[in-house]
Design a binder for these strands. Structure first.
Lengths: 238, 238
DNA sequence: TATACCATTTTGGGATACCAAGCCGGTATC
DNA sequence: GATACCGGCTTGGTATCCCAAAATGGTATA
């Protein structure tokens, strides 16, 4: 929330056929997910307007869409960047468990294991030289792509939306190398079970992975809550 | 899609503090769900504007929200009332199965059975004198309220949104008395299992109910497809 | 008759003007 | 000094205007 992107925006718009609304929506989403605007921070339509060099019409459209994604919320008459809500994170984990397990069971029941290799390659693309931001992205895309394999559009969207809501919290999470390694091992174990068409194992491993991730995430954020609030990030307790 | 509601709208607005946007959104949603505008029909912002006596700003906001509900869709540059899509109905059933079963398992694991009575009372409120429209609404609310019992906001919203998408198709479905009776019996059996805290039974019964409903629904619509299209309703095959 | 082409209209996207409600700061009063 | 009040300023909600692109329809030509 520091320098003006209007010029950059205008330039990038030249190259693509992207509408102002899509532009504002995408950039504002990136700012929120990238924590360039803090959870709980107030937003005014006029500030966004000036920041991105667009008028209020596309700004309002973007806000309405981001509201349905849970990234911004109405605050009385105005707008707020949604706070991190620990109770919500726990509920999302339950939701994820339901839809991701259903998706992976579907995938196991189909005979197509070739797409699993693509996902495994995604995991392989991360090594000790990979920036943390990339690990973060791949860790989310793993689950999204896994759900995509099921071929069910609704399960896919559910997982994608859930991961979007989790994104900022996962980024704030204090994770050590060991935790990342464990997560990757669990991801690989899930893929292995799918390759064997073993739905029960895959479901059990995925379920445990989601529950474990939730516990680590909520614990980490609850411990860091004071520090996060000091940085201006609203973190609502469970 | 025949007479002008602008005056009625203005009058109803007087009594409540509802904004134009909420007004347009609610009324347009009711028109779509009530099949007053047919699936597949083209919508123009200007027509909606004139119809509800609101300017384009709230109209556009309403369309954006209804788009995320899946009730309207972009059609190139314009808008369309979403067609009935049999493939989508089948995918929604899979999605419902995942989230509703998860919700009912959660509910069974809690010790509160008192709320079940409220839902049972809902079912009881329908008898041979009840208009079909009411059966239709209660049949949907049963599932929505059941998910609400879980206490998980995301499972609840998922079921509510899924039922919203199914609403028009269920309304078009040709259902005999016997089918309705069977559905109600299945609903009651599910509640009975929940009362006993028997999660496995509840899950199995609910799952079978959803799959059975889907089969009857898709079969009915596929058989009626020609007739429905003749009535101007776009029905996309599976 | 079929088709390519052009003028006109329609339509969604965006920008802007206006308004009422709420917020904030200052001031006067107790 | 605290507080109640008031006036201006900010802000979201709405209406309206403009524009480019797409649809439409009529016409001329092959």
């Amino acid at each position: 929330m520091n320098f003006n992107l209007a010029a950059v925006n205008a330039a990038s718009q030249k190259g693509s056929a992207m509408s102002q609304m899509q532009n504002v929506e995408r950039q504002l989403r990136e700012m929120i997910l990238g924590l360039e605007v803090g959870p709980g921070e107030k937003l005014t339509e006029r500030w966004i307007e000036g920041r991105f060099g667009a008028s209020r019409t596309p700004v309002r459209a973007a806000l309405l869409r981001l509201e349905t994604e849970g990234l911004v919320a109405r605050d009385g008459r105005g707008w707020t960047v949604s706070p991190i809500n620990l109770a919500e994170l726990e509920q999302i984990a339950v939701y994820r468990e339901a839809v991701e397990v259903a998706a992976v069971r579907l995938t196991c029941s189909s005979a197509d294991t070739s797409a699993v290799d693509v996902i495994e390659a995604m995991l392989d693309s991360c090594d000790e030289n990979t920036p943390r931001e990339e690990w973060h992205r791949v860790g989310m895309d793993f689950h999204i792509e896994l759900a995509h394999l099921s071929g069910n559009e609704f399960l896919f969207r559910a997982v994608r939306d859930a991961m979007t809501r989790l994104s900022r919290a996962r980024w704030l999470e204090v994770r050590d190398e060991a935790a990342l390694g464990r997560a990757w091992a669990e991801h690989r174990a899930i893929l292995a079970a799918i390759r064997l068409g073993n739905a029960e194992d895959a479901a059990r491993l995925l379920s445990a992975h989601i529950v474990g991730s939730r516990d680590r995430l909520v614990t980490s954020l609850a411990n860091d809550r004071r520090g996060l609030r000091a940085r201006g990030f609203a973190v609502v307790a469970a």
